[in-house]
Simulated scan of single mutants.
Amino acid sequence: MITTSIFPGRYVQGDEALGVLAEEVAHHGNKALVLADKFIMEHQRSAIESALSDMNDALLEPFSGECCDDEIQRLVARFSARQCNVVIGVGGGKTLDTAKMVAFEHKCPVVLVPTIASTDAPCSALSVIYNNDGSFCRYQILEHNPNVVLVDTRMITQAPARFLVAGMGDAFATWFEAEDCRIKRGANMTGRVGPMSAYALAHLCHETLLEFGAHAKLACENQVVIPALEHIVEANTLLSGLGFESGGLAAAHAIHNGLTVNPNTHAFYHGEKVAIGLQAMMFLTDRPSAMIDTVFDFCEQIALPVCLADIGIHALSETELMAIAEAACAQGETIHNEPYEVTARRVMDCIKMADAEGTRRKRLQ
């Protein structure tokens, strides 16, 4: 049996790490297309320009907000017109996924600067492509992981803590999904079985979240950098990235993709919907009651969604719920990595059960 794992070329993290951005970029190119989201353009533009002041040429380009084919092709054309040789992505998950796609199209290096710790997108050789309306379209597997991922934890604290919490929702699914892939020998994102190191890192991610999650959230709310915050940023970004990509995805992310069929969910973050997917996964995979309690307790502790109403879904008909479940069970979806029977009917029932449990808990508060 051949196992395969993939990693980013360099991972740099720390308080005011933005100060070494130009040094890291210089290893890969001298004429950059710098893709930045709206928040960065409005609030952090001067910091990014200062960090890149030693570069000869850097074009700062606003990101439209959706990682979709139209936006990717617009930026591919901008890269060509300016004859750039490296892409820098600064912002959240969709900004970074788009930067990776532009680099993929031009077969050039990419340097990513996540300004929120809301997903594990920065470290992966994968972009999640959406339709123009925000619904899930496809996964695009890339040729290699980012050349550099640079995380300035001081910058992370400048964003609302909700982003960090959403990242914990995404990361919290990592070990559960990797463990089911390990049991079934399900494929990771390379199409092969993961190595023991990936499963070990996924479990470290899980332990880190439970140990430091609450204090990291508090630190972010107070805009201070402490070791607990550093640990959670690393868990959300690096450990979760390595765990999902080299360990594998399963039901939680597939159910997330199904939830995007409902337009009411589009206002909520990826990790918030993954948390709902994980809660449903607990029932789908017959986890012990104590483990189910651990999942719901953690989500409640850090204010992740615990029922469908928390992600904008109210009073859906059975037909609408079945549409979500069928999308989660589509051919090629990661839910088929589960070592359990998977049908759309079972998935719908487990979504309803998780919603009922979360609703029950909220009533007791």
Score class of each variant (00 low, 15 high):
Met189Leu: 15
Thr190Lys: 12
Gly191Pro: 13
Gly194Val: 14
Gly194Tyr: 12
Pro195Cys: 15
Pro195Ser: 12
Pro195Asp: 13
Pro195Thr: 06
Met196Ser: 14
Ser197Asp: 11
Ser197Thr: 15
Ala198Tyr: 08
Ala198Asp: 08
Tyr199Arg: 02
Tyr199Thr: 02
Tyr199Phe: 15
Ala200Phe: 14
Ala200Trp: 14
Leu201Ala: 11
Leu201Met: 14
Ala202Gln: 01
Ala202Arg: 00
His203Thr: 02
Leu204Tyr: 04
Leu204Cys: 10
Leu204Asn: 07
Cys205Asn: 14
His206Ser: 02
Glu207Lys: 12
Thr208Cys: 09
Leu209Pro: 07
Leu210Gln: 07
Leu210Pro: 01
Leu210His: 08
Leu210Tyr: 09
Leu210Ala: 02
Leu210Glu: 08
Phe212Gly: 04
Phe212Thr: 01
Phe212Leu: 08
Gly213Asn: 04
Gly213Lys: 04
Gly213Arg: 11
His215Lys: 13
His215Pro: 00
His215Met: 14
His215Gln: 15
Ala216Leu: 10
Ala216Cys: 10
Ala216Thr: 05
Lys217Cys: 05
Lys217Pro: 02
Lys217Asn: 00
Leu218Asn: 11
Ala219Phe: 08
Ala219Leu: 03
Ala219Gln: 06
Cys220Thr: 11
Cys220Val: 07
Glu221Trp: 02
Asn222Asp: 00
Asn222Gln: 03
Gln223Ser: 08
Val224Asp: 01
Val225Phe: 08
Val225Cys: 15
Val225Met: 11
Val225Trp: 05
Val225Asp: 03
Ile226Arg: 07
Pro227Gln: 05
Pro227Ala: 11
Pro227Phe: 07
Ala228Gly: 04
Ala228Asp: 15
Ala228Val: 10
Leu229Gln: 01
Leu229Ala: 02
Glu230Gln: 06
Glu230Met: 07
His231Asp: 12
Ile232Gly: 04
Ile232Trp: 03
Glu234Asn: 09
Glu234Arg: 14
Glu234Leu: 10
Ala235Glu: 03
Ala235Tyr: 01
Ala235Asp: 03
Asn236Cys: 09
Asn236Glu: 02
Thr237Trp: 15
Leu238Thr: 09
Leu239Val: 02
Leu239Lys: 06
Leu239His: 03
Gly241His: 05
Gly241Glu: 04
Gly241Gln: 03
Leu242Thr: 06
Leu242Tyr: 10
Leu242Phe: 14
Gly243Gln: 12
Phe244Gly: 04
Phe244Gln: 01
Glu245Trp: 05
Ser246Asn: 03
Gly247Val: 06
Gly247Cys: 05
Gly247Lys: 05
Gly248Gln: 07
Gly248His: 07
Leu249Ile: 09
Ala250Lys: 07
Ala250Ile: 08
Ala251Ser: 15
Ala251Arg: 05
Ala251Ile: 12
Ala251His: 05
Ala252Lys: 04
His253Met: 13
His253Glu: 10
Ala254Phe: 07
Ala254Cys: 08
Ile255Glu: 01
Ile255His: 01
His256Ile: 03
His256Lys: 00
Asn257Val: 10
Asn257Ile: 12
Asn257Glu: 09
Asn257Tyr: 03
Asn257Leu: 11
Gly258Asp: 01
Gly258His: 00
Gly258Arg: 00
Leu259Ala: 12
Thr260His: 05
Val261Leu: 09
Val261Ser: 08
Asn262Ala: 13
Asn262Tyr: 06
Pro263Ser: 13
Pro263Tyr: 06
Asn264Phe: 10
Asn264Glu: 13
Asn264Tyr: 11
Thr265Asn: 13
Thr265Trp: 13
His266Ile: 12
His266Ala: 12
His266Gly: 11
Ala267Tyr: 04
Ala267Asp: 08
Phe268Leu: 09
Tyr269Trp: 12
His270Leu: 11
